[in-house]
Write a protein that binds this DNA or RNA. Structure first.
Lengths: 163, 163
DNA sequence: TTATTATGGATATTACAGGTCTGTAATTAA
DNA sequence: TTAATTACAGACCTGTAATATCCATAATAA
C-alpha cells in the first residue's frame, strides 16, 4: 500500500517544470540531474505524462518538456492516476462467496451503482474512503505547492540569516 | 497502489467472526471455506490479527478464533494497518536533491513535525491526503458493516419477493 | 493419551516496480 | 543536406513483495 517512486518522480518533475515556466522548456538531462534519477527511467515517466496531456514534449536540439496546461489545472489526482492507473484501490476478490450470500443475501440491485453482481459492503466502505482521498488530491495542484514554496522562502529568509 | 488480497481476507474474516459472535469461536476451516481461500494462507493472516490483539485464538479441540474486542471497536484502519503495515503511503525518495534545495531553500526546520531533514512539500500534501483516508477508515468499524448488512436484508426482503 | 486445532518456519511461484540499454524518429543548427 | 541533439518506444534484466503451500510443533480439550 505505497505510492510508487514513479509518482514521486512525476510530481517533482512537474514541480520543476512549473517553477521554470518562463524558460521555454526543460530537457530530460536537466530534470534527471535535478531529481537524482537516471534519464532512461525518467523519460518513461515523462512519456506517460505526455500521453495524458499533462506535459508537452519537443524533440530536437534545445527540445525538452513543458507543462501542457497551467500549473493550477494539474491536480495531484491527475498525476497519480496517470502513473498509478485508474483502477480502484480495493476490489473484493470474490463477490460470490458464501460470505456475501450471508451478508447481502440478495443484494437489492438498485444499490448505489449497479456494479457487476451484488455489491460488497466491505468494498463499499473502501470505495468511500478512496473518494475522500481523491477529493483531497483533487484540491491540491502543482501551483498549490509552488505557492507554498514561495511563501516559505519569503518568511524563511527574512530573519533566518544564519551566518 | 492497491490494497492487498490479505486485507480483503482479513476484513471479511472479521466480518464473519463478528456476525457469528453468539457461537463461541470459529475454526480456520470454516473461515477458509466461507471466504474461498486456503486454510494455510488464511491462518497466516489470522496470526497477524491475533498478534495485534484484534482476534483471540484458542487451540485444541473445538478451538478457533473470536473477536478480541467488540466489533464496534475494530476500525477498518486498525485492520488495514495490521496487514499493510504502518509506514506512510508516500515518502519522498531524496529530500536532499537539488529540487528541494531550490524549493524549500533551507526549509525552516521548526516545520510542522520536525521530520528528518527538511520537509518535502510534495510529501506534505500526500501526508494530508493520507490523513483524510485514515479519518474515514477510522470512522468505519466491523460493526458498521454488520449493521448495514442487517438493514439491507430487512428493507430488501419485505417486497422483494421475486417468485 | 489422543485427536484436534492453531502456530511458525521453510519454500515455491508469480507479478511488478524499478531500472538499463538500444535503436528510431523528429527537430533544429550549421 | 547533413550532423548534432533530443525525445520515444521497446526489449530486457533484476530484486523484492505478494500469494500460496507444506510440514513440524505446540497447545488444548475430551
Amino acid at each position: 500500500m505505497q505510492f510508487s517512486k514513479s509518482t514521486d518522480y512525476a510530481l517533482h518533475a512537474l514541480l520543476h517544470l512549473g517553477n521554470s515556466e518562463r524558460h521555454n522548456n526543460v530537457g530530460i538531462k536537466e530534470l534527471a540531474v535535478t531529481l537524482g534519477v537516471s534519464e532512461s527511467y525518467l523519460s518513461k515517466i515523462m512519456s506517460k505524462l505526455r500521453q495524458d496531456g499533462i506535459v508537452r514534449a519537443v524533440p530536437g536540439v534545445n527540445g525538452g518538456y513543458e507543462l501542457a496546461k497551467p500549473a493550477d489545472q494539474i491536480t495531484f489526482l491527475d498525476v497519480i492516476q496517470v502513473i498509478e492507473g485508474r483502477q480502484q484501490m480495493f476490489e473484493c476478490s470474490n463477490t460470490n462467496s458464501q460470505q456475501h450470500q450471508l451478508l447481502a443475501d440478495e443484494g437489492t440491485d438498485q444499490g448505489h451503482q449497479a456494479r457487476r453482481g451484488s455489491e460488497c459492503l466491505v468494498e463499499k466502505v473502501m470505495y468511500g474512503a478512496e473518494q475522500q482521498l481523491h477529493q483531497y488530491l483533487q484540491a491540491h495542484t502543482i501551483q498549490t505547492v509552488i505557492d507554498e514554496a514561495l511563501k516559505r522562502n519569503c518568511s524563511g529568509n527574512h530573519d533566518k540569516n544564519k551566518k
